[in-house]
Amino acid sequence: MLRQKNAFFGMILFAVGLSGCSGQDPAVAPGECPNVQPPPVASSAPPTTTPPGQSVDLAACSGAATQEQIDKELEIVSFLSTDFHEMVVCGGLANRFAYELIHFFASIGCGEPTNPVGLIFSGLGTFLAGGVMQINVKLAKDSNLGKAGDPVPFDLFSIGSYGAGISVKAEITADTSWSTEGEFAAHVDGTYEISVDAPNPDALGLWGIAATGKVSKTQAELAQAIAENVVFSLDIEQESSQGVKYRIVSPDFSPADLYNGTGIDLPLTFLEAIIPETNQKTTLDHWGIRFVPDQIGILDGSIGVKVDGGSVPFYAVYSYAQSRTPSVAVSCNPPSP
C-alpha cells in the first residue's frame, strides 16, 4: 500500500501543549497543526439505497400461502438486515476509538486533547456506547499495572492519568492520502518532546515513555508501543423493537488491527428473531463476519438463518462483499456448505 504526502499538509508544523493540576487547557495558535480528519462513523440508520441484490425463490415451499401472507412473512428478512447494520456502526466507533488513542499525544501537542467520540469511560478499562456496545481495554502484557488480560486501571484518554504538568512539543506532518484509494483517514507522522513534572511511570510505560526528564518519541514509536501493550475487545448486544436480538463478543485485538486497516472478526454468541404476529422464529445456519475499516467501515462475510413457524419456512443468506449493505438470497433450500 503506497503512502503519498499532500503538498499543503506535508510541511513541518510546530505545537506545544501544556496541562497540569490547574486544569488549564493546552493552547496553541490556530493553524499550527494539520487539519487531519479522523474516520467518520456510519449513521445508526442503514443506507436507504437499494441493497446490492436480493433474490427470492419460494415456489417450492409456499404451498397454499397467498402472496399477501408471503410478503408479510418476508418482512423478517428486512428486520434482520436493518439490525445487522448495527455492526457497521459499532465497528466504526471502535475504529475511531483506536485512531484517536494512537494520535493521543498529537492531540495534546496540538492543544486539542481528544476523547473518544460516542463513548463514555465507565471505569476499569470499560468504555460504553449507549446500551449497545462496550469496548474493554486490557493489558496485553504483565506489568506493574496488572497481569495480561486485566483491565487497564485508568482512563487512557485522561491526561491526568499520566501525571501532572505534561508538556508536549510536536513536529507534525499530516499524510492526507494514507492509502492510494483514499480508504482510510489521514495518519499523523511526527516527533514529540515529552516531559512530565510529576509522572506516573506505570501509565507512561504503556507508551514506551520513560518517566525521567525530557523524552523524544516519534509517532511511529508511540503507536507501536501502545499497540503492543494494550488490547481491545468488543461486546455488542443489539435488541430491537422488531423482535431481533443478537450478541457479539470479539476476541482480543490490537488497536493496530483497526488503525492499519487489517480489520477484526465479529463472532456471534447469540441470535434470535421472534415475530409473534406471524409466529416466526429464526435458527442460525452459519455466521462468519469481519469488520474492515475503510473511510466509514464495511463488513465482509455472510450470515445464514432458517426461518420457521410461519406458513412458509425458508432460509435467508446475507452476503457482505466488503460492503455496508448485504445482498440477500431467500430460498426454500439450505445454503450450500
Rank of each mutant, 00 (worst) to 15 (best):
M1E: 07
Q4H: 09
F8L: 15
G10E: 05
M11D: 13
A15I: 01
G20L: 11
G20R: 13
P30G: 03
C33L: 14
V36P: 01
A42R: 04
P46M: 13
T49W: 06
G53L: 13
G53A: 14
A60C: 15
C61R: 01
Q67C: 02
K72M: 04
E73M: 02
V77N: 02
L80S: 08
L80Q: 13
S81V: 10
F84N: 05
F84A: 06
E86G: 06
V88E: 05
C90F: 03
L93C: 12
A98W: 06
Y99L: 15
E100S: 11
I102A: 06
L124V: 13
L124H: 11
T126F: 00
F127T: 12
L128A: 09
L128Y: 03
V132A: 06
M133P: 09
I135V: 13
V137C: 04
L139I: 14
L145F: 10
G146Y: 04
P151R: 03
P151I: 02
P153Y: 03
F157W: 12
G160Y: 01
S161V: 03
Y162I: 04
Y162R: 00
G165E: 03
I172S: 09
T173R: 07
T173G: 14
T180I: 12
T180G: 05
E181H: 08
E181P: 00
A186K: 00
H187R: 07
I194G: 00
P199I: 07
P199Q: 11
A203K: 01
A203Y: 10
A203E: 05
G208I: 05
I209W: 07
G213W: 04
V215S: 11
V215K: 13
S216K: 15
K217M: 08
T218I: 11
Q219L: 03
I226D: 00
E228D: 13
E228R: 10
V231P: 08
F232K: 05
E237M: 15
Q238F: 07
E239P: 00
Q242W: 10
Y246T: 12
Y246M: 08
Y246N: 15
V249Y: 04
P251N: 11
P255F: 10
D257A: 12
D257Y: 13
Y259P: 06
G261L: 04
G263N: 06
F270M: 09
G288I: 00
G301R: 05
S302C: 04
V305W: 00
V307P: 06
G309L: 02
V312R: 00
Y315H: 15
Q322R: 12
N333F: 15
P334Y: 05
P334Q: 06
